[in-house]
Nucleic acid binder design. Sequence first.
DNA 1: CTGTTAGCGCTTTCAT
DNA 2: ATGAAAGCGCTAACAG
Lengths: 376, 376
Amino acid sequence: MRKSGGAGVRIDDVARAAGVSMKTVSRVFNQEPNVRPETRAKVEAAAKALNFRPNPSARSLAGRRSYLISTLYDNPSSSYVMQVVSGVLDACEAAHYSMMMRPVDYASRDHVDAIADSVAQYAPDGLVLTPPLTDDEALLERLQAMGVRYASISPREQNARIGARLDERRAVREMMAYIVGLGHRRIGHIKGHRDHGAAEWRLQGYRDGLADAGIAYDKALVVPGEFVFESGTAGAEALLSLPEPPTAIFAANDDTAAGVLHTAARRGVRVPQDLSVFGFDDLPMARQLWPSLTTVRQASRDMGRIATEQLLLSIRDPLAGGVVQVPYELVFRESTGPAPGHAASSKAAPSRAASSKTASNKAASGKAASRPKKMR
Amino acid sequence: MRKSGGAGVRIDDVARAAGVSMKTVSRVFNQEPNVRPETRAKVEAAAKALNFRPNPSARSLAGRRSYLISTLYDNPSSSYVMQVVSGVLDACEAAHYSMMMRPVDYASRDHVDAIADSVAQYAPDGLVLTPPLTDDEALLERLQAMGVRYASISPREQNARIGARLDERRAVREMMAYIVGLGHRRIGHIKGHRDHGAAEWRLQGYRDGLADAGIAYDKALVVPGEFVFESGTAGAEALLSLPEPPTAIFAANDDTAAGVLHTAARRGVRVPQDLSVFGFDDLPMARQLWPSLTTVRQASRDMGRIATEQLLLSIRDPLAGGVVQVPYELVFRESTGPAPGHAASSKAAPSRAASSKTASNKAASGKAASRPKKMR
DNA sequence: CTGTTAGCGCTTTCAT
DNA sequence: ATGAAAGCGCTAACAG
């Protein structure tokens, strides 16, 4: 009697059918070198004929590898996490790895211990870290001490050898140029969570954009936030109550922007006639809000996949893999328009993307970036 | 040299430390009977002292069980899936199981084969099925043929022995009573995806509500949908273009309701002054929309956890476990108000929940339901 | 390039 | 109530 639905076909069945040894079958399945192409073909044919599926437990036990990637997250945005996870899953499936999810309570004192325990127990071959865990120094230190390999999504420079990132600073800077082009001079910003590198990069991009336009940085127009909806309502409340309120607000992410729109609607401030709003992420929600949201598209699923691919590379060869930069895209929708009293058309997209509603850094930078390039 | 971070402590180390045999330690860890309490205590102490963690691969290999639950989903709503998954994870963690996620392309011809393959390979001890997979007859048949145990979230009656559900029909019926109480007589409905039992139950609840109020069912006020944002925009477009448009719309879920709000805003229809809107699910988004959404709260995380607990029970004892009914809750927010020309206060909640903005089926039914009760 | 042998760490079966 | 021996299905280390 065999395991429910299990094939019941074992490696020696395949070996016998192909007329080779177990070890050769093993070699073929693990993509090891030193197998003649014809032998390989014979084995593959036999395996397919018998519908052989290696038993993951036996593989892990004998091989001292788990073929398991663990994804760690503590991010309030379900959409973001699901997108990254989908990408990780894509890469795992392609490499015949499996993935487990580890929700983390970043705020808890002993989250590092909890993670270490889980790593000790399941011995994943690698971890995928999402923000803000990518920059959790205590965690990184512990993982390094344990000798666990990890990939980072959107890490700060110094914290990652393997992962995926996006030039958020430049993305925001470009978006700011668009906003300034619409005639806005008083542009507010609701910041992201201080523990995220992203909060910093987006703020820098905002400042770059102001500097490019010769607009002085005004501390009063920059308020704190934590990348959540409530940051947007509170931030908008504060900014719109200013004696001289901004005509545009850059919310550090789409969730925050949703809060800004909510508060604007509640206060009877019309978007974009009285106030332009833009965010960052391009969550599915961004199209669904009213007005739909101008934002920066972050290909989170691709980032998850790419980071995992790099991780898998580095698992095979400790020197391989790196941090890959993925392209972003500016998405112009209805939440931004000309500054009150300004003449420009409300639908105008930047000239360099005149034929489309989006502009990517690929186009903007002038070099081909359809294949992500590594950063050193 | 031991596996990265791995404890390196094995079962015979514990056995030696406790002065018993390996098998006894195994018995303790698997909660098997026939171990004297004092022996058990000795073993547990030794294990704790050595920080012993059973090796999952060895366990699975020798025990022919994977200690793995696989969650299958093909649902457009990230929030919904993440909530269910969180619940599944809660239950798995408590039982020392791990979970893997299986995205499914329900539309693809060979999705059943793909699932069967994955089941054959990983041999999960059980599956958790989310809608619409809970009612995918071809899939269920195949799983039964393979002898795989599964739990269903929100299944139709005949399709599940193990799982969790919610009395959606009654929830909508109650909500309709509230809407009728606000003076609405022309109430539209945008349906859910025909493959989901939920679409049917919610439609029935809508019809029950009309019947309760003595309002004739009007086919013209009911339009198709698929539980997505676009269903809401299209459905609202259709309903609001009617010669005599409805004064309230019941959108089959929150995503659809978001689309209705979007279209209403675009067309200059004021919510709730000109149009009341309500949904189903209470996704995080429901609070964030403007106006915030009146809806039915579905405790998706609890449903995921409870369904998994039942599944785990049935894994230990094939006769154990069942379909558990979980309570819902009506959440009254800003998207609903008195019908145009009606006198009632716009904030009025149903009398039975006058002191709160919510009413649950617990309160409404008059029987305690804080602990979910089983259905037979 | 390919095969042989000896386990990986645990649970099973069957004794006691 | 407890233990001893025999694998689970695969890969590592070596040998050829």
